[in-house]
Design a protein around this nucleic acid. Structure first.
Lengths: 233, 233
DNA sequence: CAAGATGCTAAACGATTGTTCAACGCGTGT
DNA sequence: ACACGCGTTGAACAATCGTTTAGCATCTTG
């Protein structure tokens, strides 16, 4: 109930400034002084509020996690991708958050692991729902499929630069998302291959090499997630 | 033709040490002294050979690019994913390279752009071949599909930690790749949905909102690359 | 009004950073 | 034998880093 200074509390201003800079330039490339300047405070105050630079990072991580995943209701009740939809809906405003989350997911922090696990279980339960509703066919392996669907859903965040560049934009815009929607939905609906010759070939190859499984699998020809071409001609 | 000292030239030893550390810890978190120590030389020699730390990074980038994309023959002649297959075939030895490439792709450097463009055009020509060979059906949008197939193929590199964790491993191993092969091939063969209701719904929604296209697209409900559920109940 | 806690700043500290510089060893050519 | 260029080192540089400290202002509490 305190008199709202300008906008929000000083501690929150520092945290938000840190999220912007950590997301844009990375944690190591961002100095405490830069955060302090952007927040309009002195460097010492940053340490006073968060103990250390790592403490500031931890506070940012926690904030991100329970601001966007702590909405357990939306998340656990089916829709992991709904979250990402919301983020991408008004990209302009969410850009700092998106950048920060993207950096989290490619780093190795417990917070990033928790965030990803939340998204993954959400996607898994969504798949369960849709399969039992008859909307989705039964995948070959529900767990692994849910894992990859989650990973693929995060591609627009983690590799946003290459995605935007590939579509002739300089950053993720609503136009980029618009142009992506149908091709991806087409891929998820009809698949990519005309028949299942690659699938059965890989199945046979894996079964053939699963018995005498040497720990160095340099001789089994099909361990690739992408189409093996290897035609006999 | 020079007498092979121990292994390779000093300049190459420094470059390889830098690739290991840049890939493992990141560019900003790696000091010139750390590179020098790992290479067994003095810090001054690193600068003497590469001019500056940024020069060292540029040399590493160039080396990576034309070591793995400069094989234009393999790449341009169809198989972008063949490259990634090779990398993942003996993961253990390629780990430093994989880490470095993963960091490149999520950074914003011209070298990373060149590398990605090479992979993308390779994937695109592979799709062209397979479509005209009747192996692959005609995608809804060849260019955008090729872009996303390329991005998806890089997921095991860029998000290797979450992928490995999701499969109960602590790093990318041949076992992780083996367990991934069939589910992904299944997804690319049969798709995910039982019918095309989402696809046509998204098509109609996009056509409906494409006319009075406001620059803030906050009201069009379907801009998501992931399945919109939005059922009326 | 006195007293103490709180938010905050300015200045400074030691450590580490990227980089420079003078010097040394050592083959090679003259 | 002498000079020179090249690869290399170790010490030193200024700059910047995260963090500490002393102190000021403001507000609350008794």
């Amino acid at each position: 109930m305190r008199s709202s200074d300008d906008d929000r509390t000083t501690r929150a201003r520092i945290r938000d400034a840190a999220i912007v800079l950590f997301g844009r330039d990375g944690f190591d490339a961002t100095s405490v002084r830069a955060v302090a300047t952007l927040a309009g405070v002195s460097p010492g105050l940053v340490i006073h509020h968060f103990g250390s630079k790592d403490g500031l990072r931890a506070a940012c991580d926690d904030y991100i996690v329970d601001e966007f995943v702590g909405r357990k209701s939306e998340l656990a009740s089916g829709r992991a991708s709904a979250l990402i939809e919301q983020w991408l809906a008004d990209v302009e405003r969410m850009t700092p958050l998106i950048d920060y989350v993207a950096r989290m997911l490619t780093s190795s922090s417990p917070s990033a692991d928790a965030l990803f696990d939340g998204l993954r279980t959400g996607t898994a339960s969504m798949i369960d729902e849709q399969v039992s509703a008859g909307i989705m066919r039964e995948p070959l392996d529900r767990d692994v499929t849910a894992l990859y669907i989650t990973l693929y859903g995060l591609v627009p965040l983690v590799m946003q630069r290459q995605l935007a560049r590939g579509l002739g934009a300089d950053r993720i815009t609503t136009e980029v998302i618009r142009r992506s929607t149908l091709p991806i939905l087409d891929l998820y609906t009809h698949g990519l291959y005309a028949d299942d010759r690659y699938l059965v070939a890989a199945q046979e190859a894996l079964e053939r090499s699963s018995g005498p499984r040497s720990d160095k699998g340099e001789n089994d020809p099909n361990q690739d997630p992408d189409p093996p071409i290897r035609r006999a001609s």
